[in-house]
């Protein structure tokens, strides 16, 4: 990892830490979290706690389970935006090539096809039968441009490289 990336990471972590500081560990977020209800590993309170306590993010990758429903944000009595913090953790992890394969595959599909769920020939036939107009065709070029502009393409590359390394 380059020095620049390293300082960026430290700075991003520091920003997350600042955002997490008001948290007083009451547990309202955890008891409101629909994911925690079925997945005991994913506890938003503990994720935030490790940032405050050690300034580091946990390595187990549970943050990718967050459904971003914003229930914790809505109910946090201290106004801590937990979902945003978890998103920040995901961003940091993704830049290090730690994004789960499901996510990278989804992104690849999007980049290649311009949409996540391709139009099936069956639904096209049905539309003709019903006399409905054709669906607009997604343009992968536009999507790719967007991915380049938001540097998501770079993150995708890093993750693909990491995946290949792991498979070797």
């Amino acid at each position: 990892m380059t020095d620049q990336a390293d300082t960026n990471r430290t700075q991003e972590l520091e920003e997350l830490r600042e955002a997490a500081r008001p948290c007083f560990q009451c547990g309202i977020c955890a008891s409101s979290c629909p994911v925690f209800r079925v997945t005991p590993e994913m506890n938003p309170r503990v994720a935030v706690d490790s940032i405050i306590a050690s300034g580091e993010i946990s390595e187990d990758g549970t943050e990718w389970l967050c459904a971003y429903c914003l229930m914790c944000d809505q109910r946090c009595p201290m106004g801590v935006s937990l979902a945003e913090i978890l998103l920040g953790i995901k961003n940091i992890a993704a830049k290090e090539g730690k994004a789960p394969t499901e996510f990278t595959q989804t992104l690849e599909t999007l980049a290649d096809d311009g949409c996540l769920s391709p139009i099936s020939s069956r639904s096209e036939k049905k539309r003709v039968e019903l006399g409905l107009p054709d669906l607009p065709r997604p343009d992968p070029v536009i999507i790719q441009k967007m991915l380049e502009a938001t540097s998501a393409a770079d993150v995708l590359k890093i993750n693909k490289a990491a995946l290949e390394e792991a498979s070797e």
């Binding site: 547990g27 955890a30 008891s31 209800r37």
Partner: peptide, 13 residues
């Protein structure tokens, strides 16, 4: 009542 037992990191319902 949904509440997290924060000493045991456990969801109680």
């Amino acid at each position: 009542v949904s509440v997290e037992d924060t000493t045991h990191n456990k969801l109680l319902m």
